[in-house]
Protein backbone atom coordinates (compact mmCIF):
# COMPACT_ATOMS: atom_id res chain seq x y z
CA UNK A 1 0.00 0.00 0.00
CA UNK A 2 2.80 2.39 0.89
CA UNK A 3 4.53 1.50 -2.35
CA UNK A 4 1.39 2.51 -4.27
CA UNK A 5 1.27 5.81 -2.40
CA UNK A 6 4.94 6.48 -3.03
CA UNK A 7 4.49 5.80 -6.75
CA UNK A 8 2.30 8.86 -7.05
CA UNK A 9 3.90 11.04 -4.39
CA UNK A 10 7.55 10.37 -5.14
CA UNK A 11 7.46 8.76 -8.56
CA UNK A 12 8.80 5.41 -7.36
CA UNK A 13 8.65 2.66 -9.94
CA UNK A 14 8.20 -0.37 -7.71
CA UNK A 15 4.45 -0.61 -8.04
CA UNK A 16 2.26 1.98 -9.73
CA UNK A 17 -1.47 2.33 -10.26
CA UNK A 18 -4.28 1.04 -8.08
CA UNK A 19 -5.84 -2.39 -7.53
CA UNK A 20 -7.95 -1.86 -10.66
CA UNK A 21 -4.74 -2.36 -12.60
CA UNK A 22 -1.13 -1.72 -11.73
CA UNK A 23 2.39 -2.22 -12.93
CA UNK A 24 5.07 -3.99 -10.92
CA UNK A 25 8.67 -2.81 -11.46
CA UNK A 26 7.46 -0.89 -14.51
CA UNK A 27 6.97 -4.15 -16.41
CA UNK A 28 4.69 -6.80 -14.95
CA UNK A 29 1.00 -5.97 -15.29
CA UNK A 30 -1.42 -6.80 -12.47
CA UNK A 31 -5.19 -6.39 -12.48
CA UNK A 32 -8.28 -7.03 -10.41
CA UNK A 33 -10.05 -10.16 -11.78
CA UNK A 34 -13.51 -9.17 -10.50
CA UNK A 35 -13.17 -5.77 -12.18
CA UNK A 36 -12.28 -7.52 -15.44
CA UNK A 37 -15.30 -9.82 -15.19
CA UNK A 38 -17.54 -6.77 -14.71
CA UNK A 39 -16.03 -5.01 -17.72
CA UNK A 40 -16.28 -8.12 -19.89
CA UNK A 41 -19.92 -8.37 -18.83
CA UNK A 42 -20.55 -4.95 -20.35
CA UNK A 43 -19.33 -6.34 -23.66
CA UNK A 44 -16.08 -4.39 -23.84
CA UNK A 45 -12.87 -6.33 -24.40
CA UNK A 46 -10.16 -4.78 -22.23
CA UNK A 47 -6.52 -4.42 -23.21
CA UNK A 48 -4.20 -7.43 -23.25
CA UNK A 49 -2.11 -6.02 -20.38
CA UNK A 50 -5.15 -6.01 -18.12
CA UNK A 51 -6.16 -9.54 -19.08
CA UNK A 52 -2.65 -10.87 -18.45
CA UNK A 53 -2.55 -8.92 -15.19
CA UNK A 54 -5.82 -10.50 -14.13
CA UNK A 55 -4.53 -13.99 -14.89
CA UNK A 56 -1.34 -13.35 -12.90
CA UNK A 57 -3.38 -12.26 -9.89
CA UNK A 58 -5.74 -15.24 -10.16
CA UNK A 59 -2.80 -17.65 -10.46
CA UNK A 60 -1.02 -16.08 -7.50
CA UNK A 61 -3.95 -16.20 -5.10
CA UNK A 62 -5.14 -19.58 -6.35
CA UNK A 63 -1.71 -21.03 -5.59
CA UNK A 64 -1.39 -19.50 -2.13
CA UNK A 65 -5.00 -20.16 -1.24
CA UNK A 66 -7.56 -18.54 0.98
CA UNK A 67 -8.44 -14.90 0.91
CA UNK A 68 -4.89 -13.67 1.45
CA UNK A 69 -5.86 -10.51 -0.43
CA UNK A 70 -8.51 -9.73 2.19
CA UNK A 71 -6.36 -10.11 5.27
CA UNK A 72 -2.96 -8.97 4.00
CA UNK A 73 -3.57 -6.55 1.13
CA UNK A 74 -7.03 -4.98 1.24
CA UNK A 75 -6.94 -1.48 2.78
CA UNK A 76 -10.53 -1.68 4.03
CA UNK A 77 -9.28 -4.28 6.49
CA UNK A 78 -7.92 -1.40 8.58
CA UNK A 79 -11.43 0.04 8.89
CA UNK A 80 -13.24 -3.21 9.60
CA UNK A 81 -10.60 -4.49 12.01
CA UNK A 82 -10.89 -1.29 14.00
CA UNK A 83 -14.66 -1.77 14.15
CA UNK A 84 -14.11 -5.36 15.26
CA UNK A 85 -11.61 -4.34 17.91
CA UNK A 86 -14.05 -1.76 19.32
CA UNK A 87 -16.83 -4.36 19.24
CA UNK A 88 -14.80 -6.63 21.48
CA UNK A 89 -13.76 -3.79 23.81
CA UNK A 90 -17.30 -2.41 24.08
CA UNK A 91 -18.69 -5.88 24.60
CA UNK A 92 -21.14 -5.45 21.77
CA UNK A 93 -20.91 -9.09 20.81
CA UNK A 94 -22.30 -10.42 24.05
CA UNK A 95 -25.33 -8.15 23.94
CA UNK A 96 -28.30 -8.83 21.76
CA UNK A 97 -26.93 -6.50 19.13
CA UNK A 98 -25.47 -8.97 16.73
CA UNK A 99 -28.21 -9.03 14.12
CA UNK A 100 -27.73 -12.10 12.05
CA UNK A 101 -30.26 -11.13 9.41
CA UNK A 102 -27.59 -11.26 6.72
CA UNK A 103 -26.24 -14.65 5.80
CA UNK A 104 -22.64 -15.43 4.94
CA UNK A 105 -23.50 -16.42 1.40
CA UNK A 106 -25.13 -13.07 0.65
CA UNK A 107 -21.84 -11.99 -0.90
CA UNK A 108 -22.08 -14.51 -3.69
CA UNK A 109 -25.53 -13.20 -4.56
CA UNK A 110 -24.17 -9.65 -4.53
CA UNK A 111 -21.21 -10.63 -6.70
CA UNK A 112 -23.64 -12.16 -9.18
CA UNK A 113 -26.15 -9.31 -9.30
CA UNK A 114 -23.35 -6.77 -9.81
CA UNK A 115 -22.21 -8.65 -12.91
CA UNK A 116 -25.79 -8.49 -14.18
CA UNK A 117 -26.12 -4.77 -13.41
CA UNK A 118 -22.77 -4.16 -15.15
CA UNK A 119 -24.08 -5.88 -18.24
CA UNK A 120 -27.30 -3.84 -18.21
CA UNK A 121 -25.85 -0.39 -17.46
CA UNK A 122 -22.62 -0.73 -19.41
CA UNK A 123 -20.46 0.34 -16.47
CA UNK A 124 -18.47 -1.82 -14.05
CA UNK A 125 -21.05 -1.48 -11.29
CA UNK A 126 -19.07 -2.40 -8.18
CA UNK A 127 -16.32 0.07 -9.00
CA UNK A 128 -18.82 2.91 -8.66
CA UNK A 129 -18.98 2.53 -4.90
CA UNK A 130 -16.29 -0.02 -4.08
CA UNK A 131 -14.91 0.96 -0.66
CA UNK A 132 -11.72 -0.91 -1.46
CA UNK A 133 -10.73 1.29 -4.36
CA UNK A 134 -12.19 4.39 -2.67
CA UNK A 135 -9.95 3.77 0.32
CA UNK A 136 -6.97 3.08 -1.86
CA UNK A 137 -7.49 6.08 -4.12
CA UNK A 138 -8.07 8.09 -0.96
CA UNK A 139 -4.64 7.16 0.31
CA UNK A 140 -2.93 7.67 -3.06
CA UNK A 141 -4.76 10.66 -4.58
CA UNK A 142 -6.62 12.17 -1.59
CA UNK A 143 -10.03 11.46 -0.05
CA UNK A 144 -13.30 13.04 -1.18
CA UNK A 145 -16.85 12.56 0.04
CA UNK A 146 -16.25 8.92 -0.85
CA UNK A 147 -14.88 8.52 2.66
CA UNK A 148 -18.55 8.40 3.71
CA UNK A 149 -18.75 4.87 2.28
CA UNK A 150 -15.90 3.84 4.58
CA UNK A 151 -17.60 5.47 7.56
CA UNK A 152 -20.79 3.61 6.67
CA UNK A 153 -18.93 0.30 6.63
CA UNK A 154 -17.24 1.13 9.93
CA UNK A 155 -20.55 1.89 11.62
CA UNK A 156 -22.24 -1.13 10.05
CA UNK A 157 -19.50 -3.43 11.29
CA UNK A 158 -19.48 -1.80 14.73
CA UNK A 159 -23.19 -1.51 15.47
CA UNK A 160 -24.73 -3.76 12.84
CA UNK A 161 -23.51 -7.18 11.85
CA UNK A 162 -20.19 -8.48 13.17
CA UNK A 163 -17.79 -8.72 10.23
CA UNK A 164 -20.71 -7.37 8.24
CA UNK A 165 -18.89 -6.04 5.21
CA UNK A 166 -15.92 -8.38 4.80
CA UNK A 167 -17.64 -11.51 6.01
CA UNK A 168 -21.10 -11.14 4.49
CA UNK A 169 -21.37 -8.58 1.71
CA UNK A 170 -18.13 -7.83 -0.11
CA UNK A 171 -18.29 -9.25 -3.65
CA UNK A 172 -14.53 -8.96 -4.09
CA UNK A 173 -14.06 -11.14 -1.01
CA UNK A 174 -16.53 -13.56 -2.57
CA UNK A 175 -14.42 -13.65 -5.72
CA UNK A 176 -11.27 -14.38 -3.80
CA UNK A 177 -13.12 -17.05 -1.80
CA UNK A 178 -13.78 -18.86 -5.03
CA UNK A 179 -10.26 -18.32 -6.37
CA UNK A 180 -8.62 -19.36 -3.10
CA UNK A 181 -10.55 -22.58 -2.54
CA UNK A 182 -7.79 -24.77 -3.87
CA UNK A 183 -4.58 -23.15 -2.63
CA UNK A 184 -1.66 -24.68 -0.80
CA UNK A 185 -1.24 -22.69 2.40
CA UNK A 186 -3.87 -23.67 4.93
CA UNK A 187 -4.49 -23.64 8.68
CA UNK A 188 -4.18 -27.05 10.29
CA UNK A 189 -6.01 -27.96 13.50
CA UNK A 190 -4.61 -30.47 15.96
CA UNK A 191 -7.52 -31.88 17.92
CA UNK A 192 -5.31 -33.54 20.58
CA UNK A 193 -3.81 -30.24 21.77
CA UNK A 194 -7.07 -28.28 21.77
CA UNK A 195 -8.51 -27.25 25.15
CA UNK A 196 -11.71 -25.87 23.64
CA UNK A 197 -11.06 -22.33 24.90
CA UNK A 198 -12.73 -20.90 21.80
CA UNK A 199 -10.35 -17.96 21.54
CA UNK A 200 -9.79 -18.77 17.89
CA UNK A 201 -13.49 -18.67 17.13
CA UNK A 202 -13.89 -15.29 18.86
CA UNK A 203 -11.07 -13.69 16.93
CA UNK A 204 -11.75 -15.31 13.56
CA UNK A 205 -13.46 -13.01 11.05
CA UNK A 206 -14.96 -16.01 9.26
CA UNK A 207 -15.48 -18.35 12.18
CA UNK A 208 -17.76 -20.71 10.25
CA UNK A 209 -14.59 -22.10 8.63
CA UNK A 210 -13.35 -23.29 12.05
CA UNK A 211 -16.16 -25.81 12.40
CA UNK A 212 -13.64 -28.58 13.19
CA UNK A 213 -12.31 -27.01 16.39
CA UNK A 214 -12.13 -29.61 19.16
CA UNK A 215 -13.87 -32.10 16.91
CA UNK A 216 -11.32 -33.51 14.54
CA UNK A 217 -7.76 -32.93 13.41
CA UNK A 218 -7.99 -31.56 9.90
CA UNK A 219 -7.12 -28.47 7.92
CA UNK A 220 -9.34 -25.52 7.11
CA UNK A 221 -10.37 -26.13 3.53
CA UNK A 222 -12.94 -23.37 2.95
CA UNK A 223 -11.94 -20.63 0.52
CA UNK A 224 -13.59 -18.16 2.88
CA UNK A 225 -10.68 -18.50 5.32
CA UNK A 226 -8.55 -15.38 4.89
CA UNK A 227 -5.30 -17.01 6.08
CA UNK A 228 -4.89 -14.05 8.42
CA UNK A 229 -3.30 -16.25 11.09
CA UNK A 230 -5.07 -14.60 14.02
CA UNK A 231 -6.34 -17.95 15.26
CA UNK A 232 -2.76 -19.22 15.34
CA UNK A 233 -1.67 -16.09 17.24
CA UNK A 234 -4.28 -16.43 19.99
CA UNK A 235 -4.03 -20.20 20.41
CA UNK A 236 -2.19 -20.97 23.67
CA UNK A 237 -2.25 -24.71 23.17
CA UNK A 238 -0.33 -25.09 19.94
CA UNK A 239 -3.39 -26.61 18.34
CA UNK A 240 -3.31 -24.50 15.19
CA UNK A 241 -0.59 -23.88 12.63
CA UNK A 242 -0.03 -23.11 8.97
CA UNK A 243 0.80 -26.02 6.74
CA UNK A 244 1.10 -26.88 3.10
CA UNK A 245 -2.14 -28.47 2.19
CA UNK A 246 -2.11 -32.23 2.06
CA UNK A 247 -3.89 -33.36 -1.04
CA UNK A 248 -3.38 -37.01 -0.22
CA UNK A 249 -5.37 -37.87 2.87
CA UNK A 250 -3.67 -39.83 5.63
CA UNK A 251 -5.79 -42.62 6.93
Amino acid sequence: MFLYFAANAYGWKIIEGTFGASVLFGKIPLADPYNIVQILATGFVVGVDVLIGGLIIIAFYALIGGRVFCSWVCPVNIVTDLANYLRRKLNLDSLETNYRFIKRNTRYWIAGIIILVSALTGVAAFEVFSPITIMQRGIIFGFGIGAAVLLAIFLFDLFGVKNGWCGHLCPLGATYSLIGSFGFIRVLHNHENCTNCMKCKIVCPENQVLHMINKESTSVTSGECTNCGRCIDVCDDNALKFELRRFIKKD
Binding site: N8, E16, G17, T18, G20, A21, S22, V23, A31, D32, N35, I36, I39, T42, G43, F44, V46, V50, G122, V123, A124, E127, T133, R137, I140, F141
Partner: peptide, 10 residues
Protein backbone atom coordinates in the same frame (compact mmCIF):
# COMPACT_ATOMS: atom_id res chain seq x y z
CA UNK B 1 -14.61 5.04 -22.01
CA UNK B 2 -16.82 4.63 -18.93
CA UNK B 3 -16.87 0.90 -19.60
CA UNK B 4 -13.24 0.44 -20.54
CA UNK B 5 -11.46 2.47 -17.87
CA UNK B 6 -10.26 0.19 -15.06
CA UNK B 7 -9.76 3.22 -12.78
CA UNK B 8 -6.11 2.42 -12.11
CA UNK B 9 -4.96 6.05 -12.15
CA UNK B 10 -1.77 5.29 -14.08
Amino acid sequence: FLTACVKCGL
